[in-house]
Simulated assay, not measured.
Amino acid sequence: MSGQVGILLRRDLARLLHGGRGGGAILPVLFFLAVAMLYPFAVGPDAPLLARTGGGVIWVAALLAAILPLDRLIEPDIELGMFDQWTLRGITEEMVIAVRVLAHWLSFGPPLMLAALPAAALLGLNSATLRTVEIGLLAGTPGLAALGVTVAALTAGLRGGAALSGLLVIPMAVPVLIFGAGSLGAGGQSGLALTGAASLVLLAVAPFAGGAAVRATRM
């Protein structure tokens, strides 16, 4: 079983990093940096304002970047009958979803954490704020990955599912966004703890909710 899971993880990660119509892992990073570059033009050259709000902008950009590959997370495998093949090999839908969450996070979480370094320079964030942002992204992006995969499973097979999944993820990700951005203010440690707690809840729920949604779609 562990060998099959490893093969599945490598397959999913290769598809998400290099693949297809979603542009691979580079598109979310470019989108993330584009938001960081455009925001100073929108608010003007007010350094204190940029420093105050830049961390929140990074969080919003991270959420939007995580949404970009949703249309390729689940639906293509359902259309190709891959879930039927995995079931015949003894790999449950819950296991596939759990591996997909990990692959999705690896494809955008660490790259966005690296991209946050130049983004912080563009937004004028100091080193302490940048450190808090990086820890928050480390705690929060796994939850965003779990939420994205779950919603992608729920909307797979629906007409306009890609657009619908994006619309669903944004409001459902608000708690992670609030806690993550809130960690940049007073009481930052509690904000980071709540961000991590929200991520853990989403990670625990995702395999079961996503697996049930995939089974319902295949019926």
Rank of each mutant, 00 (worst) to 15 (best):
V96C: 00
L88R: 14
L117Y: 07
L112K: 01
R21N: 09
G24M: 12
Q85F: 12
F208D: 00
P111K: 08
L123A: 01
I135G: 05
L49I: 09
A103M: 03
A186R: 14
A213G: 03
A213H: 00
A152T: 00
L64M: 12
I178N: 07
R15N: 11
L112G: 11
D46W: 06
G143C: 09
F108Y: 13
V43G: 03
G185M: 11
G20C: 07
A213M: 07
T141K: 03
R72H: 06
A121L: 15
T150I: 01
L122K: 05
L70M: 13
V57Y: 04
I78S: 10
L184T: 07
E134Q: 15
A209M: 07
L13S: 04
G55C: 09
G180S: 15
S107A: 15
G22I: 11
N126I: 05
L167M: 13
V149D: 01
L16E: 13
A153R: 05
A186W: 07
A51I: 07
A116I: 09
L122I: 09
M82A: 13
I67N: 06
L16A: 04
G19K: 08
L130A: 05
L70T: 09
A212L: 13
I178F: 14
V101P: 00
I91C: 00
G191N: 06
A47C: 06
I26M: 11
A14W: 12
G161M: 06
L49G: 05
V5N: 00
H104D: 04
T195N: 12
L167D: 00
A204V: 13
Y39C: 06
T155E: 05
A65Q: 04
L114M: 14
G210H: 00
L68P: 08
A193N: 10
R159K: 13
L138A: 15
A181S: 15
R15V: 13
V57T: 11
L68T: 03
L106V: 02
L16T: 02
A153V: 02
L177D: 12
A128V: 15
A146K: 01
V133M: 02
A14H: 08
D84Q: 14
P142V: 04
G3F: 06
A121I: 10
V214L: 12
R159Y: 01
G90H: 01
G210E: 04
A163L: 14
L17Q: 08
W105V: 01
Q189T: 13
V214P: 04
R15T: 11
V205H: 04
T53V: 14
G3I: 05
L27T: 14
E93A: 13
V151S: 03
T155S: 02
G44K: 00
A212N: 08
A153I: 08
I135T: 14
M219L: 12
G24A: 06
G90V: 05
F31D: 11
L184W: 05
E75N: 07
A216Y: 09
I91Q: 02
G20K: 02
L112N: 07
E93H: 15
G44R: 03
L88Y: 05
G188D: 03
L137A: 11
L70Q: 14
G143K: 08
A173E: 04
G20L: 03
V29F: 09
V99D: 03
V29W: 02
P207H: 05
E93I: 00
L16P: 05
L203G: 01
V60N: 00
A156K: 01
